[in-house]
Design a protein around this nucleic acid. Structure first.
Length: 373
RNA sequence: GGGGAGGUUCCCGAGCGGUCAAAGGGGGCAGACUGUAAAUCUGUUGCUUCGGCUUCGAAGGUUCGAAUCCUUCUCUCCCCA
């Protein structure tokens, strides 16, 4: 559940505490993505030190490797990985989307082939909930059908219907969980880029008493203006008293839009993925450290940043690490980017409490877009 | 001293008479990345006033035409003495 501790007033932005089995998470919050039970290129201890209390794991990947036997044997994801705070686990719905050539959706569930060894598997809303229970996931996500922009209304509606049906089945299965398992389950709104379908999906999903609601199917290749339009449009139908989660967004501009729309949680591979490709966030935009112009730049990534990386290492050195393909390069940029994201959320929360979110967002984005890196 | 192999665009390396400014790697440069099949992928990499111009160790030669054939020189590596 979520307790709202402050509201911005001028916008729908809100601050709160998300109470979960492995501790409270301050919202709005960004979740780093840890697909395989690790946030790539960084230690849990570093995440913890930054302040992260909730990260994402992936059902699809963990189910395939190491597999259920090992995860059950370990006693769940926390025990297996050593991450002592919360895990939200994605259902595999997105992999059904992104690995579309390897799967077939039926009303029963999704049949798919492993991208690793081609082996055949079936995910149903029930089985996916059960798997996530075995993970001892703090927030499990329902299996859903995520669709790309540009499809016909008819096709989007079909996906919506299946998503709603699966949501009901998943919720029912979750209600029958083992009493010792305290994890929550979130429903996911779909509806593609059709307003009637978004509204309908939101109403159908919200009619089920999920402890939290996610907006899915955004940031799947549509234009930013379209993203914003459907974000705000969909968010208005979500219940105020429940945690709200927009799946798959993670650039400062998208995140601040989501906060303004009243969203509490987001996740994204972006900050960690681009970090491994040498891009780093600063208040003045994103820069690619592998670029030649940084070879003699002995200053920190971001002079305003207080992270350990910025205190100790220069742009020129990190560029050198990337040019030489040293593993430390991605490690340092990942740490910086996650620190940046945490700080951005922290500043966002502070501005909501102060009632200055609107101007904080405007000022931040003004500098961010202006560049001057 | 004798015998053999070879010098290709930043590097390695293919090419062995025209379709070659020259395959393929590497390196360089740039771009992309948004519920992670990603420490990945894509583009580009002689000069150009875009008509061309210069380039395959050097200099000559054969040919309509040469990185590719011939001669000499030069350098490198290997084997034998």
């Amino acid at each position: 559940m979520i307790e709202i501790t402050a509201r911005d007033g001028a916008t729908n932005a809100r601050r709160g505490n998300l109470i979960l089995p492995h501790g409270t998470v301050e919202t709005p919050t960004f979740m780093p993505v840890g697909t395989n039970g690790t946030v790539k290129a960084i230690l849990f201890s570093a995440l913890e030190k930054m302040g992260y209390r909730l990260i994402l794991g992936n059902t699809y990947h963990l189910y395939l490797r190491p597999g259920m036997e090992i995860l059950k044997g370990a006693g769940g994801l926390h025990q297996f990985t050593g991450w002592e705070h919360n895990f939200l686990t994605d259902s595999g719905g997105f992999q059904v989307f992104s690995l579309s050539q390897l799967r077939k959706i039926t009303p029963e569930g999704v049949r798919f082939q492993s991208h690793i060894d081609g082996s055949r598997h079936l995910f149903t809303p029930e089985s996916v909930s059960e798997v996530q229970e075995f993970f001892r996931s703090d927030i499990q996500m329902v299996l859903d059908v995520c669709t790309p922009p540009g499809i016909e209304h008819r096709e989007a509606e079909d996906a919506l219907k299946i998503t709603t049906d699966w949501a009901k089945r998943a919720y029912k299965r979750w209600e029958q969980r083992d009493p010792s398992y305290e994890g929550l389950i979130f429903g996911i709104v779909q509806g593609n880029f059709y307003k009637d379908l978004r509204k309908r999906s939101a109403e159908e999903i919200c009619s089920i008493d999920f402890p939290g609601i996610a907006i899915g199917g955004l940031s799947v290749g549509e234009e930013k203006e379209v993203f914003k339009e459907y974000l705000y449009y969909t968010a208005q139908y979500l219940p105020d008293e429940k945690p709200r989660y927009v799946m798959g967004i993670g650039t400062p501009d998208y995140m601040l839009e989501a906060v303004e729309a009243g969203i509490d949680i987001f996740d994204c591979v972006y900050p960690t993925r681009v970090a491994r490709n040498s891009s780093v966030f600063t208040d003045q935009g994103i820069i690619a450290l592998k670029n030649e112009r940084f070879k003699n730049d002995f200053g920190p990534i971001d002079p305003e940043c207080t992270c350990p990386v910025c205190r100790q290492f220069s742009r020129a050195y990190i560029r050198h690490l990337f040019k030489t393909r040293e593993i430390l390069g991605p490690m340092l940029t990942t740490e910086h980017n996650l620190h940046f994201m945490y700080r951005l959320m922290e500043r966002t929360r502070e501005s909501i409490s102060a009632g200055t979110f609107k101007s904080f967002k405007a000022d931040f984005l003004d500098r961010y877009y202006r560049g001057d890196k």
